[in-house]
Every structure is written in C-alpha cells, then in structure tokens.
Design a protein around this nucleic acid. Structure first.
Lengths: 272, 272
DNA sequence: CTGCTAGGATTGGTTGAACCAGTCTGAATT
DNA sequence: AATTCAGACTGGTTCAACCAATCCTAGCAG
C-alpha cells in the first residue's frame, strides 16, 4: 500500500497512518485489525517493526490489544484524551466534525486562559514579567508589520510565558495539547489567523494587571479580548457548517466521506 | 534488577517501571538511558521487547529517541500532558509534589465541571436526563448506607453521565485523565473521600436545573457544592504540607527522597 | 600548536525466523 | 444435545544478524 515517506522511521509512519485511519473514521470502533503478520506484510515491513507501531497506538488509547484475540479499534470519542486533538483535526475529512470541535473548544480555551492568567497574577515573579514584556515588544513589532503568521507564531511564545508564569504543572499539562493543536492549525491554515485590532492593547492590559497584582483586571482584559476573537471565529465557521455535507472553502484538501456513519457530536435538547 | 509481576506483559511492565522512575525524579530530565542492548539485559529480556517499552515511553512524551544518540529523558514538567496525572500521583514519593498538584487541580476541576454542567443544560436529551436520574437514585441509596467508597464509585458514573449529556468531544477528552486520576485516588486512599452532607441535595439541584433548562441555577449548585468539598480537602492537605520534607500521615507508602533536587512548582510573587 | 579528517565504536533502526502462549472454532465423542 | 479436545488462529518473546546515524578519537595536515 502506497506509503509516502514522512520521516526516517517506519514504525512511526505506520503509527501515524493507522492513527489517521482511526481518527478519520475509516477504521471504526470495535473493528478488528488484521493479524500482525498480515499487517506487517501489507505495510511492507516485518512483525517487530509493525508491533512497535501497534504499541504506540495502544499507548495513545486508539486500540486495545489482547493476547489471542487480536488488535481492536477503541472508541476514541469515549476513551480518548486531548492528546488526540491535533491529530484528530488533521485526520478529519468531515468538515462538520472540525467545526463542532472548534466551536466546542473555544469556551474551554477561554476558561483555561483566564485561569492561567489568574495564576500568573498570583505567582509571577520578576523574571516571568520581564519575559512577558520582552515577548510583548516583539509581538507589537510583528503586529505593526502586519504579518499574521509571524504574530501567530510569536503569540505561541506569549502563551508559553503566561502559562510558565502561573507555575502550575496542571495548567501546563492542560494547555500543552491545545498549544500543539494551535501550532498545527497556524501552519495549515495561516489565512484563518486574523489580526484583531485590539490585540496589542490586550497584551499591554494583561501585563499591567499582572505587574500590579490586579487579578480581576487581568481576567477581564483576557475575557474581553477573547469574546471578540472567538466571536469572529464563530462567524467564520457558521456559514461553512450550514452547507449540508459539503466541503468548506479551505479547511479540506482531500475530502472524501465514503459513508454517512459519523456519530452526531452535538444534539440539541429535546423539548422538555 | 528485581521486577515484580504486574500483568502478563513484559514490555508493559518495563514501560510502567521506567515511567515510575522518570515521574518520581529518579531519572532526571536530560539524563541518558543506557543503550537498548544493555537495558534489555538489565531487565532480563531481549531488545525487541525492550524497544516496545521504549516506544510507549516515547508516545507518552517521557523520552526522546534519536538514531545514533540514544534515549534521553524528557522534561515532562514542560512537555507533558494530563495523561501523566494519574501515573505521576502514583509515582510521586515527594509529598510536596502531590500536595501542590492536588491544590492546583481543584480550581480547574471546578471550572471543567461547571462547563460540563452548562453543556448538559444546553444539550441533554431525555435519555441523558433519565440516566442521570437513575444514577442519582442509586447514589442516594449508597449515600444513606454510609459507605464512602461505594458512593465514590457511583459518583464516577454520575460524572460520566453528566459529561456524556454535554455531547462535547472536547469536554470528554479534557475530563478523561482527571477521571482516571480520580479513580486511582479512590482506590488508593479511600479514607480521603468524605461524605459531604449536602451531596444528595447537590445532585437533585443539578438534575432539576438541567430538566428545566436553567443554566445559571445548575452552575450555581455545582459551584456551591465544590466550594464546600474543596475547602474541606484543602484543609486536609495544608497541615500535611506544613511539615518540612516529612511524609504525611497516609499518602506515602515508601517515601524516600534521596536528594533535594525537586524543582519548585509554585513560587510566590516577588514583591512588586 | 591548531584544525581537519578518517575510521572505529556506540547508538538506534530493521529484518527474518522460530517458538511460546492465550483464545476461538468446530469436529469427534459421549 | 452437551462435552471435549485438537488444531488453527491470535499476540508475546526470543535470537542473531545486519543497516544506518552519530559521536569520539587518533592521526594527519596545516
């Protein structure tokens, strides 16, 4: 089966390929994979290397392996974790899936950032604030140059610094998968990253609030900014999702949805 | 090296053992593991099986592997995800670490549950509500019997149902690692799970609010409950963390901290 | 002495074959 | 019809090579 070379590691490529198949729905939950011997032959490798790929799938909770029974595709919608966010977005060929996920992530993202901001206000030391200010200067310059991608990339450093300033293992671990997804999305759809006019003001406000230890002011600044940004993003998404089963303008390269077996992710409340 | 048999899978045991060593700080970030040949011999197995364990470590972001260079321990504090929460709590021998993590997770947990509750109010259908009511009945009965462990176990099902009622992939993926950690903690320290007197009322209030579609009421009920529970938990933790470097009453079985190299996780803000 | 280079040692990556060990299936037996 | 058991799956483990990237060092050239 045609495998393009992504990096120099066979097991990783097979892992990525099978992960894509599972996350895209090509392999469904409960389905059994072929035996290791057959799979190895199919991917043109040997059993040991193939097994390394299966081990990674197992660790990613995408399959379950039982001696004597074989390898079974797991229901990642139920048992998955945020680690799957980035590969899921990359694997999804169904635009409705992507739209729902992005819509559903906006609120948790704001809640996380508000909390991160709170912790930064409470715990940031001089070094943390200096780092934030340095990045802020760079961002302002990049913003003035008007290059959205450069800003987006620098913004990742800002978020990193903000989260570090909170000195919370938990918040860092919460944020990492979202930052990964953000990074990937910036690389794939640079056009989506609009330059919100209030961006520089938002940065300054947050830093000021952190410097003077004003928690509510910092959170308010964060919230106000994301209300605007997320609103714009929602507006950009809604028209796309309104078309029935079609591929949206620029979110899909090779959209093919062989059957309509996609589990509904969002159900509206039935009339009480 | 003495390895106890945990389950029938050598690679998994080695993976778990190395993960424990890394998460406990026994192996530090940046440190290089021995070569695969040597490691395999040390654990009394062959290279292929050993490599399967290393692959899982790699997938868990606990090590990085580079051809020609070897296996390097990653800085999981920076690059980890919530997947590490449960194994980290199990591996930690430093009571300060555990205390900080638990303190830092309480707020995010409430935020997550509040958001999950909001989504449940917006999206729950008749089936979801029925499921919640069924579990509620069981929980009330268990609560009256006074067995904290049974209640805690049933509460996991309640949380599952609540999250399902929100029909959000993202929230489910956010919650799973925390539910895993909760499950483990209940099994390990059943004594910590106190029966809050307002527990049955909280459940009823949330269900009512969901039924009548009153979002704010549902969130208020959730928040009010967790303010009480978390307050109690914080009080239980603070006295333990106040002792300097000592093992707390019942959170550590084999506490041994060979050197004082633990990276400070929480720094107070320096005087502005 | 300094700098570069070639080669050897060390590391992970890949391979194929053989055998061990659970699990399932179906035919033979009772 | 129920039971049993052999065989045909499945994954689990082991061994022994060899390939390929990286690192280190001895030796050479400047």
């Amino acid at each position: 089966m045609a495998e393009e070379i992504r990096n120099g590691n066979i097991a990783d490529n097979i892992f990525a390929e099978l992960r894509r198949k599972i996350l895209s729905g090509e392999l469904k939950a409960g389905e059994r994979l072929s035996g290791e011997r057959e799979l190895a032959q199919k991917y043109g490798t040997n059993r040991n290397t193939l097994r390394e790929a299966v081990r990674k799938l197992e660790q990613a909770r995408l399959v379950t392996v039982r001696h004597g029974q074989g390898v079974t595709v797991a229901d990642f919608r139920k048992t998955g974790t945020l680690d799957l966010l980035s590969p899921f977005l990359q694997a999804s060929t169904d635009s409705g899936d992507i739209t729902h996920v992005i819509e559903d992530i906006l609120e948790p993202r704001v809640l996380l950032l508000e909390h991160a901001t709170r912790l930064a206000v409470r715990r940031a030391d001089k070094q943390d604030i200096e780092r934030l200010m340095d990045i802020n200067d760079l961002l302002i310059a990049a913003f003035d140059s008007g290059d959205a991608v450069v800003v987006a990339r620098g913004f990742q450093r800002w978020l990193d610094a903000l989260i570090d300033a909170g000195h919370s293992l938990i918040v860092r671990w919460f944020a990492n998968p979202m930052l990964d997804a953000y990074r990937d999305m910036v690389e794939r759809y640079p056009a989506l990253w609009v330059l919100e006019p209030s961006f520089p003001k938002h940065l300054r406000d947050v830093i000021h609030a952190i410097s003077e230890g004003n928690e509510e002011k910092a959170v308010d600044a964060t919230r106000a900014y994301y209300v605007r940004v997320d609103g714009a993003l929602r507006n950009a998404l809604v028209p796309a999702s309104r078309r029935e089963g079609g591929a949206e303008p620029e979110l899909a390269e090779g959209a093919n949805d062989p059957e309509g077996t996609v589990v509904p992710m969002r159900r509206r409340k039935s009339p009480a």
